[in-house]
Design a protein around this nucleic acid. Structure first.
Length: 210
DNA sequence: TTAAGGATTGACT
DNA sequence: GTCAATCCTTAAT
């Protein structure tokens, strides 16, 4: 790759499956009037569209909600779910092709106090961005940011100098895609304390362990 | 126009 | 371990 650190647009033009593991360890910054919060990404999940992936919002083609997934790569796809939560994705693949990487968990490495103010003062530091909806709150991302360019202010993204180890496994929490195919859509940093604990009664897959 | 479900989380037994 | 909250999006009348 070219410059270590800042990815160019081409980096995201690949399939989400290709981009996802390389996003592990990347640092995403969101700057607001309150200050900057930087997140070290520790867990992601890949989604592709158009009939390939039953768990993807783009499985049945483009709709108003998932329009950002079909947009240019390197942008943000933010959506609302469960009546109370927002999740954030990094759009991949060239414009016109639906694929994205869901940010599932990370560690706040800058702006901890800001993140804690948003999440709650009693929240443990490792829990600030552990989980997709929590991560969004910690970073201060909202539905308004849907379609925003992650390579331009107020956002910025930096890749790790060295690609650390990564583990893969099937999804959790997605209807229709968890146990059916078992395809490893999910990537995380092995052993990292901020990787979301698979609650729900769903048992962890025996396949991938740290 | 109406109905059903969800890429989750937090609280409670 | 189990369950409810809550509202937007999508699919079906």
């Amino acid at each position: 790759m070219s410059a270590v650190g800042v990815p160019n647009r081409d980096f995201f033009a690949a399939s989400a499956l290709d981009v996802a593991p390389r996003l592990l360890g990347a640092r995403l910054t969101h700057e607001t009037a309150h200050g900057a919060v930087t997140l070290r990404i520790t867990e992601v999940e890949a989604y592709v569209g158009d009939g390939v992936d039953p768990g993807s919002h783009a499985f049945r083609g483009q709709t108003r909600r998932n329009a950002a997934m079909y947009g240019p790569p390197g942008h943000l796809y933010a959506y609302f779910t469960y009546g109370m939560h927002v999740c954030a994705n990094v759009v991949c693949s060239p414009a016109g092709e639906a694929s994205a990487v869901l940010l599932r968990a990370g560690e706040v490495v800058e702006g901890v106090e800001i993140a804690r103010e948003r999440r709650g003062l009693a929240v443990a530091e490792r829990d600030l961005a552990r989980g997709p909806a929590r991560l969004v709150v910690a970073l201060g991302i909202g539905l308004d940011d849907d379609g925003a360019d992650l390579l331009d202010p107020p956002f910025s993204l930096r890749l790790p100098e060295d690609q650390g180890p990564s583990a893969t496994g099937p999804r959790t929490g997605v209807s229709g895609a968890g146990g059916s195919d078992g395809f490893p859509w999910r990537f995380w940093v092995p052993g990292d304390p901020t990787v979301s604990p698979y609650r729900r009664h769903a048992r962890a897959f025996p396949d991938a362990k740290t």
